[in-house]
């Protein structure tokens, strides 16, 4: 059964901002009569605009921020569906199903959270950083191919997050991979936990680094998905002990030990 607060609603696009790097920030205004959505970082929604039959399926997006009847989504244009979403004008309507999926674990006292974001994988981690209590021990490691990919860097800095940037071409922050930054920090002392979202090769490397040091690690995954609620069984990911898990119901946030990337 769907959690009681899961709703399927028509929302209005409040604003649609170009962030550069092929990314847009969509702010959705939820219907007023709706009870407030208690969205947790790492949860996602299924979005679909009013554009006829192609593409047919909604698209899954991690929530970037939520509150006061608004929902922010980071959209990176990768194909027809995201291009249509990115092209929606403020005032247009779209259907939203959510909030869905398992969130990141809540911050734990005495444990430092290392948030590892690759490119447009910043969404749920930015939200996690925003939601963490002021003074929480966390660092956001944010990497991309070049500075233009780090579309939320200024916002993250403005929000007061402890931020470390890196780019493969060295155009912003240190030169290298975000996993280089992670490796340096994992060699530090004290209890740590890693939360990551980004391209699969990056996640693989993050999981490997954490596994080698016995550090607790959680990853937010992206897969092809039709329904978002466990009906289609289309979003399967491999489990280390065999069989499959559904990204939508069992994730999209998994413990590293629960999935084979």
């Amino acid at each position: 059964m769907t959690p009681s607060q899961t709703s399927f609603v028509t929302a209005r696009l409040g604003s649609n901002e170009d962030l550069g790097g092929g990314c847009r920030l969509l702010a959705l205004v939820l219907p007023e009569q709706l009870p407030a959505w208690d969205v947790e970082p790492g949860q996602f929604v299924m979005l679909r605009g009013d554009w006829g039959l192609h593409p047919l399926l909604p698209r899954a997006f991690s929530v970037l921020s939520a509150g006061s009847g608004r929902l922010e989504i980071l959209v990176k244009v990768v194909g027809r569906g995201t291009r249509l979403l990115a092209g929606q004008a403020p005032g247009s309507t779209m259907t939203v199903l959510g909030p869905l999926g398992r969130p990141f674990p809540a911050p734990a006292s005495g444990v430092k959270d290392l948030l590892v974001a690759g490119g447009s994988g910043i969404g749920p981690l930015f939200f996690y950083g925003l939601r963490a209590a002021p003074g929480s021990d966390l660092e956001l490691l944010y990497g991309g191919r070049s500075g233009g990919d780090l579309v939320l860097a200024a916002r993250a800095a403005a929000a007061g997050l402890r931020l470390h940037l890196c780019t493969e071409d060295g155009s912003a922050g240190s030169r290298g991979m975000v996993t280089d930054l992670l490796g340096e920090r994992l060699d530090g002392s004290g209890p740590m936990r890693v939360l990551a979202c980004g391209p699969t090769p990056m996640l693989r490397a993050v999981v490997e680094l954490c596994g080698a040091r016995g550090v607790e690690c959680w990853v937010s995954l992206e897969t092809e998905m039709a329904c978002g609620v466990g009906l289609c069984r289309g979003c399967s990911v491999a489990h280390p002990e065999g069989g499959w898990r559904c990204t939508c119901l069992d994730g999209a946030v998994f413990r590293a030990e629960e999935v084979l990337l």
């Binding site: 399926l57 897969t223 998905m225 289309g234 979003c235 399967s236 065999g242």
Partner: peptide, 23 residues
């Protein structure tokens, strides 16, 4: 039955393809 290996779905014009495999 566990079903088929992913990817199990993809979109087409006005439709979708699936190979869930009767999970």
């Amino acid at each position: 039955r566990p079903g088929n290996p992913p990817p199990r779905i993809c979109e087409t014009a006005a439709g979708m393809l699936n190979s869930i495999g009767l999970e």
